[in-house]
Computed example of a mutant assay.
Amino acid sequence: MQKNYTQTWSQRAVPWLFMAPALALFLVYVILPIIQSISMSFYQWDGIGDKVFIGFQNYVDLYYDPQFWTSLWNNILWLLFFMLAVPFGLGIALFLNQQVLGIRAVKSLFFFPFVISQVIVGIVFAWFYDPGYGLLQDILALFGAGPLPVLADEALVTYGIIAAGLWPQVAYTMILFLTGLNNLSPEQIEAARMDGAKGWTMLWHVILPQLRPATFIAIVVTIIGALRSFDLVASMTSGGPYGSSSVLAYFMYEQAIFNYRMGYGAAIATVLFLIMLVYIAFFLWRMLQQER
């Protein structure tokens, strides 16, 4: 009896021993900074002097700050349009999941945007949009249209940056779906073919259910990418013109680093974290419900 109890305890303890280093790193570099950031949001602090406890005043100031609402609205636009990366990535993955001559070279071309830096993507698209010598202006000239200053127009700038962000994000979701397509059950596909399934019926009833894990990951990373968008905004417009392209991540950086309002920046970070938490918790709950 004692021997069986010892074996049972060791079987339970071994997985935790293997996970202990990763859990320790996660605690120190993820959980602890989150707690510190939330705690800092209740203080007024310039990053140098003493902290002054002010309670929820930073959140009250956020509520009455029009730049916060502009940044939040831009994040909502990012979230809505960034979700296009999931169906686009799936469509490209289905197109590339073929055994034809030269398909590997084509895959590498679609994969290329994912491996380059977001800052490089921002610089490339800034050149592309440039009203003086950008390729976009040459394309518009073919149709008789005049120069279109995308990054200088308050109504267009956010959509222009989102389009730049979609380029590498579609490549990332494509990779996830290609991995899922390589792990499809050939028995299920063959059985469906014998039953006469093909085309849209095959895709909807046989392939997509098997791609559910890849779809879940693609949606989660796309949501996180949309909500923490920073690199492209910083490299393309620095939040301009007149703050019209700012998002919460860049607004947080601007307030904390340039305006020396660490507590205010921490409050923005806390709001952004809570938004991410709600979305991710919702999709986790949906996935668990479907599994049950």
Score class of each variant (00 low, 15 high):
residue 270 T to S: 09
residue 210 Q to H: 12
residue 153 D to Y: 04
residue 233 V to Y: 01
residue 247 V to R: 08
residue 238 S to I: 10
residue 291 E to I: 08
residue 267 A to L: 10
residue 240 G to E: 01
residue 203 L to H: 13
residue 215 T to C: 12
residue 195 D to A: 02
residue 69 W to F: 15
residue 52 V to E: 01
residue 257 I to D: 11
residue 210 Q to E: 13
residue 8 T to H: 10
residue 25 L to C: 12
residue 4 N to P: 00
residue 31 I to F: 13
residue 79 L to R: 01
residue 24 A to C: 12
residue 144 G to I: 08
residue 196 G to E: 03
residue 29 Y to T: 10
residue 198 K to S: 14
residue 26 F to D: 07
residue 189 I to C: 03
residue 81 F to K: 05
residue 33 P to T: 09
residue 188 Q to L: 13
residue 19 M to Y: 08
residue 28 V to H: 04
residue 34 I to V: 14
residue 120 I to Y: 04
residue 217 I to E: 09
residue 73 W to A: 14
residue 128 F to D: 00
residue 229 S to W: 03
residue 98 Q to E: 05
residue 267 A to W: 09
residue 33 P to A: 08
residue 231 D to V: 03
residue 152 A to D: 11
residue 129 Y to K: 00
residue 252 M to H: 01
residue 173 T to G: 02
residue 134 G to I: 01
residue 264 Y to R: 10
residue 90 L to V: 00
residue 171 A to E: 06
residue 206 V to A: 09
residue 13 A to H: 04
residue 10 S to A: 15
residue 266 A to P: 03
residue 233 V to R: 00
residue 255 Q to T: 13
residue 26 F to Q: 10
residue 16 W to I: 11
residue 20 A to C: 14
residue 139 I to G: 01
residue 281 A to T: 15
residue 275 I to V: 15
residue 168 P to Q: 10
residue 167 W to H: 05
residue 164 A to Y: 03
residue 6 T to Q: 14
residue 4 N to L: 10
residue 150 V to T: 01
residue 191 A to V: 13
residue 224 I to F: 06
residue 225 G to N: 07
residue 234 A to D: 13
residue 33 P to L: 10
residue 27 L to P: 03
residue 29 Y to I: 06
residue 209 P to M: 12
residue 263 G to R: 12
residue 214 A to G: 09
residue 23 L to V: 14
residue 161 I to T: 04
residue 162 I to H: 07
residue 168 P to C: 11
residue 159 Y to G: 13
residue 40 M to A: 12
residue 37 S to R: 12
residue 136 L to Y: 00
residue 208 L to I: 15
residue 61 D to L: 11
residue 185 S to T: 07
residue 28 V to F: 13
residue 220 V to A: 13
residue 32 L to F: 14
residue 12 R to Y: 08
residue 292 R to S: 07
residue 12 R to E: 03
residue 174 M to V: 06
